[in-house]
Structures are given as C-alpha cells and as structure tokens.
C-alpha cells in the first residue's frame, strides 16, 4: 500500500490522521470475547488496540498457529516469538486451517489487499499484464481465500483510492460477494462475507440485495465527493449517510503507544 492519506483532522484537542481513524474504526468493530483471525499490519494493530480498550477478552488468532495470543507489543510478523509465548495454545499450521478456521469457529476475519472491487472481492496476487506476465507480482494468497470463505464475517481494511478500489480486479484471490446478489451463497461459501469495509475515507457496507458496497459512513473531514473521487467505480451512497465518531483521547493514546512498540512501518 502507498503512504497514508494524512487528513490531519482535528476535533477538540485531538489531532489524528485518516490512518489512525481507520485503525480505531477497525478496532471498534471487534466485539469483546469474540475470536478474530488476524493478519500482520493494520489488522494486527487494530486487534491489539481493541484488546487494550473495549475488548480485553478478544481472542487473537494468527495463522502461524497461535490461538489466543496476548502480545505486549506489536509483532512484526505473524510468527513472532511473543505470540507463541503468550498464546493459550500453539497448534500446527494444518491444524489452524483445518480444525479452527475451516469449520467456522472464528467469528471475524480481517483482510486487506492491493485491490478490492464493488462486491468485496480481493486481489493480492498480481497487478497488470496478466497472471503469466504480471506488471507487479504481489505476495499471493496466504491464508486469505479460506479466511474470506470460512470466517463467520469478514472485515476489510484498506486505504481508498482509484488504484485500490477498482471496477475489475486483475486477479480474484479471495471472494467477497462474487458477482453480487446471492452469488456467494450459490458458490457455497459458508461465512457471511465482508460485512464492513473500513477505509481512510469512511465505511462501506454491502447493499442487502445487490451486495454492492455502499458508502454508509464518512470519516471526519471527508465529504462524499472526495470518497467518490477515490473510488474506481460509480460509488453508491446510502440515503442516510452517517459519520464516524472521531477517535477518543484514550483510543489515540493507546494506539500511539502500541505503534511506538514497533520500529518498523506496516507491511503491505
């Protein structure tokens, strides 16, 4: 992903960036006591923020096999020693996918990607030029296809711009709502799919019938035209458009403390 969009919005005394708003919004969407399949980068930051604020009993599951990890600092990779040291249980990689993810035991899966389309399908494989001769080769699928399929619900967290929010994916790595409507059900995917897409501009949610992602909430200081301009398709806007609550002082301070525990920036 590219550099953050710094909105530098201010409410009261608190100055925060659009990225911080996005991370806080993602954290807020994780219910206490639920289990969350976490990838590295922003999802891990958000999950750890949630565990330190409103959701102390959030169960963090990393695909390296750590169930119930409780890191006291942000891990740099999904297999850091701190995750194994603090986990309720450490299981093998076949077990994490076969016994824990596949049967739908995990409430929330957290995904990002290089591209998302209007039905919440995600590309993390190749950009441009076709699969055999790509312009940019990305890391690939990892755990994402089965997280997208089998978690009870999926949250997508991505920075919103016309390169990432595209009409047509260059490659379908993970399925959201397929071609829309009841396509996901027809494919036999068991989880509900991407129920929320959190961006640095606001929040998108699928239309109940068409499943097309619709702008339902705007971030502080963002207007509809900006959100539309950052979207590669003709973005639908909810009739009753809400707005996101800015981060509280506590959320911001905990988030910044967390980020300070890691020297490095977030991975793609």
């Amino acid at each position: 992903m590219t550099a953050s969009v710094s909105a530098g919005t201010s409410t009261g005394d608190a100055e925060f960036t659009a990225d911080e708003m996005m991370t806080v919004a993602a954290a807020r969407s994780l219910g206490d006591g639920t289990a969350c399949f976490v990838g590295i980068g922003l999802p891990s930051t958000a999950a750890n923020l949630a565990r330190r604020t409103h959701a102390p009993d959030l169960v963090l599951i990393y695909e390296s096999g750590t169930l119930g990890a409780k890191p006291d600092q942000l891990p740099l990779s999904i297999g850091d020693g701190i995750l194994a040291d603090t986990a309720d249980s450490v299981v093998s990689v076949p077990e994490i996918f076969n016994y824990w993810l596949q049967p739908g035991r995990v409430e929330t899966g957290f995904l990002g990607g290089a591209q998302v389309d209007k039905y919440g399908n995600i590309n993390t494989t190749v950009i441009g030029g076709g699969y055999e001769d790509p312009k940019v080769r990305l890391p690939g699928a990892g755990g994402a296809p089965e997280i997208a399929a089998s978690c009870q619900q999926v949250l997508i967290v991505m920075r919103q711009n016309t390169r990432s929010f595209v009409e047509t994916l260059d490659f379908v790595t993970s399925v959201g709502y397929g071609s829309g409507g009841d396509d996901r059900e027809r494919l036999g995917l068991r989880g509900a799919g991407p129920v929320t897409v959190i961006t640095d501009m606001g929040v998108l949610e699928p239309d109940p019938d068409t499943r097309e992602l619709t702008l339902t909430r705007l971030g502080p200081g963002v207007d509809v035209e900006q959100a539309r301009a950052a979207t590669g398709w003709d973005l639908r806007v909810a009739d009753e458009l809400g707005s996101q609550h800015p981060p509280t002082e506590t959320e911001l301070s905990v988030l910044r403390e967390l980020k300070a525990t890691i020297e490095n920036g977030e991975s793609t």
Partner: peptide, 21 residues
C-alpha cells in the same frame, strides 16, 4: 511451489519478483 511470497513485516521479495517479471 508456494502460497505467500514476501518479506514478512517489510514488503516484497525483489529477487523473486525479478525472476517472475
């Protein structure tokens, strides 16, 4: 033969990309 090719926590694998691209 693989499922995720990257430098964890850092970004891309440039030799891997150079070989493929």
């Amino acid at each position: 033969v693989f499922s995720w090719g990257g430098n964890p926590g850092v970004g891309s694998l440039h030799r891997f990309r150079d070989a493929i691209q």
